[in-house]
Nucleic acid binder design. Sequence first.
DNA 1: CTGAAAGCGCTTACAG
DNA 2: CTGAAAGCGCTTACAG
Lengths: 338, 338
Amino acid sequence: MKRKVTIRDVAEHVGVHHSTVSRALSPSKRDKISPAVVKKVEEAADELGYFPNIVASSLKQNRSFTVGVLIPDLTNPLFPPMIRGIQDTGEAAGYTVITANTDDEQDKELNALRIMRGRAIEGMIITTARREDRIVDECIANDIPFVLVNRTVDQDGISAVIVDDDHGVRSVLDHLVGLGHKRIAHVSGPQHASTGFGRAQAFTQCMTAHDLQGDLIEPADKYSIEEGRRAFTRLFARDKKLTAVVAANDLLALGCIDATKELGLRVPENISITGYDDIQFVDRMSPALTTVQVPKYEMGALATQKLLDMIAGDDSSASIVRMQPRLVVRESTAAASA
Amino acid sequence: MKRKVTIRDVAEHVGVHHSTVSRALSPSKRDKISPAVVKKVEEAADELGYFPNIVASSLKQNRSFTVGVLIPDLTNPLFPPMIRGIQDTGEAAGYTVITANTDDEQDKELNALRIMRGRAIEGMIITTARREDRIVDECIANDIPFVLVNRTVDQDGISAVIVDDDHGVRSVLDHLVGLGHKRIAHVSGPQHASTGFGRAQAFTQCMTAHDLQGDLIEPADKYSIEEGRRAFTRLFARDKKLTAVVAANDLLALGCIDATKELGLRVPENISITGYDDIQFVDRMSPALTTVQVPKYEMGALATQKLLDMIAGDDSSASIVRMQPRLVVRESTAAASA
DNA sequence: CTGAAAGCGCTTACAG
DNA sequence: CTGAAAGCGCTTACAG
């Protein structure tokens, strides 16, 4: 590689000290330098193709301008928009984001955190939290600022941006009950995740509020299409008369739909199915999925802003932001069959 | 945050010079230090909770164990699997990958490259190449190793992992012609991208080989659903008798399908439509898309392996790998209507 | 095998 | 407003 242009090259070119160049190029220190010099420095920097060595700057300032992100799997469509929100917000503030796929395995999570600490990340965005989470504990123990997204932990005093699942599940159930459904089941997500746990709780409560039986719940171990397929199959074996299924997320709902096809059922004619998240393209499927739309990009963006504020010391208070999701009615739900 | 333990703290604790600690902790230099000292240093490092400051190490060595990746947009479903292939391969070799979304804008590409160079990336994976590409030029000018993925440039002597579009387009046209289609149009992708250009060329050639008119081509400026919709609308205004459309990628094909619905046409009864890439969930749409399946994960993984070899100096030869795509016939194509 | 020194490219407290 | 100096935490060529 060619030798890089440094601040000293620029200084020499302009005929000032390199510290002057540093100040002229720093937005916050620029006002201490005469406009004429600033101009000359900027021109020289442009001409020479100078750009700062962030590694050197990091070392000196003891800041890395890097944040780490933990996600289960990038190819799960829930995450790309979230990551985009995180990246856009981070980059706008001069931060670089490093993301790691953990496949929901603890070993991978721990390993990723180690690597990130070696890179002196200034904070973490965590989308992989279990209700009791070792990564969260490690961050606390090591004074690493972090914000949880989508999934939160049971303990208090942490910051998170999550979805108001009571609201989301209630809107689904109001819709279904309004359509005349009574025998409604739930395919729940992993109970170690706050989403799986919270939605199942909300399901039971809302069913009870509607004076319906809220215990027809079949658990899925993972948020995946395959697990959804299996859960529906078990559900149908338990109760052939159910007319609607509330799945804990879209992937699970897609699996349920697959299972209905195998069983010769039609959606929504014989059975209504709902999802949660509104991931990309579920609006184009056959049938288009009725689901709860979650503001993925915004959650990522908001969490990152919070994290940056924490890092800057502008905000030390823990806060839980609960985003309001919105029911989107499409083709997978219809009036209950007789 | 707590003050970090440095190499000097460890040195003091053991009673040696800090350079000795550095050597004792470096796998490649360890053999120059007496085993007894190595042991004492390791114990002290453990006891004090020392882990190396990679930022300082990077600055000194001018190596970062980081590679940069340029993609247009993470929320375009073509990219998550590719990125996963890149990350998995990079991480297995101890590298961290930084990705930037450029939205296909030159300014953002240049800016991202700057930031990455500031972070001393050791190489680049580029999925955003135009046929003449400034980023590629900059990488060459600055001796930054790079590998292109999916899209390549016109010039020789670079390394890339791309798709064999002659093969892909031919398999689509053979399928369509076998179904009795004669009036076949092409919605082409951006001509500044090798994919858009190459697929359009292949289209014309294959049509000619089938003794058919290969000039019914309507260009799309971007790979997006909306552009596909517009292109199809223009196409149909030009020729109401066409019976099949080969879109340059899946997003464009989805736009075409949207347009057919607006125009009161049915797919595949009135018109057949094909995509390219086989992005997630096009198999579940209505109609399920007939498309060309591209090995996205493998392309990312292969390109990264090549890049790592180049960085290690094990492989300085430029090479173009052309992956063989595979036609997947689903519901959006059928026999030509009379 | 180990130490002492120099330096990677920046930033910033201290002078003037 | 600008300069000169010190130093962030490492690595490594040079001595011994």
